[in-house]
Nucleic acid binder design. Structure first.
Lengths: 233, 233
DNA sequence: ACCTGAACACCGTTCAAGT
DNA sequence: ACCTGAACACCGTTCAAGT
């Protein structure tokens, strides 16, 4: 309970918040029931105050999400700081990427706000710096370093957002399993004409029951292989 | 004007729509004023009818966006069909990727709905097939092909969505130029401590006034290099 | 088969007023 | 400096009723 109550003369209550409590409770709402559950009204109720008071701390819902994102990235940053740098810069890039991926996979909304406004997202900027540092040990131009880190960032955020998309309600209910859900898609694909859709038929078995993490690791490794080649390492 | 009017006995008008006109007008709204401008009320007004009639064609706003996405992807598909396959499968992958990137860069909302529900997105599935076909000419396993195309798709969609994000209103107004907007960010970055942010300082000049397309091409080429290496081609 | 008006249950945001 | 209640101008979606 990061919130306190002031008691005025008449016995009337007046809520008292803080940036910290606003962001913490916002993240709780997001974790409990997804992005659609984060409304100013729900947040105000959780904080035990009125809707309008939230506007003392943030100017808009976008800024609330920017700041909430930076708040949880703070935790990711701690995980990343605990990673021991190794001999191979590429391995360090991979380790940091995985930590970020894990965080966004669980909270896909992060992907839409990560690094969107570094003026209020100090932790995101610190993470960007952390991700970039290993490239300083690679034989690349400044431009290549910039592009390499942008590419990794895109793969991490893009994969996590894509793979973390909430499946339809029936899957969340547990009425239909994830595998069953995937199979329903592929069943349609299998009925397609083999001559017109040779590629879809080639990969349909791979798609069926595929593992999200494998897909991300493969994408990341392709980019890292490209970077390694470029650096001649 | 893809809409007609029926005239009943009393002289009363009754609008008549079609899936085609609903999607066309939806895309017009999206193009004119962005995703926030696509509301059922605005769309109904454009079609000259009531809000509820749209629900005869789509079950929800999500489905409307899924179908609108597939509608414009139909046009992209035509562009891609015009591409002559070359000797190098990797070059074909690049050409198709660029065509898709161009489309999403201009309409970033496409990225959020592309391939989200292939049951109502036949054109997206066809594009996925097109993108996958060149990999059939590479020496890869089925799983590697699946992962390669997933990776490319993530890079294309992720980059385009990222780079296509609407800049703040002041830039759209023309009050502040894009370069000036970027410079404002980097000005803050330059003030950071050099020892704590060596990477940011290394790339700040590259970020300043950088070109979106270059950034995408670099990311795509890294992935393609990884694929080429894997295929031993 | 397809369209309508009106209602329902929400939203984010603002503002004059309070403490 | 910070919080409040009430209002404003919207949303997506539903439904009984019309043609």
């Amino acid at each position: 309970m990061p919130r306190h109550q002031d008691r005025a003369a008449g016995g009337r209550r007046r809520a008292s918040h803080s940036m910290e409590s606003v962001l913490t409770e916002a993240v709780v709402l997001l974790d409990e029931a997804g992005p659609s559950a984060l409304t100013f009204r729900a947040l105000a109720q959780r904080l035990g105050g009125g809707v309008a008071s939230i506007y003392w701390y943030v100017a808009s819902k976008d800024e609330l999400l920017d700041r909430a994102t930076d708040h949880v990235i703070g935790g990711v940053l701690a995980d990343i700081d605990a990673i021991e740098p190794g001999d191979d810069p590429i391995d360090d890039l991979r380790a940091i990427s995985l930590a970020l991926f894990d965080a966004i996979l669980v909270r896909p909304w992060l992907g839409n706000y990560f690094m969107r406004n570094t003026d209020v997202q100090g932790n995101c900027l610190r993470l960007y710096e952390k991700l970039g540092q290993p490239t300083l040990r690679l034989k690349l131009t400044a431009r290549q370093r910039f592009h390499a880190v942008s590419a990794i960032s895109t793969v991490v955020v893009g994969s996590a957002v894509d793979l973390g998309q909430e499946p339809p309600a029936e899957v969340l209910d547990g009425a239909v399993g994830r595998d069953e859900f995937l199979s329903r898609f592929t069943a349609t694909w299998r009925e397609l004409d083999r001559d017109a859709y040779p590629f879809v038929h080639e990969i349909v078995d791979e798609f069926d029951g595929h593992d999200d993490i494998d897909q991300f690791r493969a994408a990341l490794d392709l980019t890292l292989a490209g970077i390694r080649l470029q650096a001649g390492a």
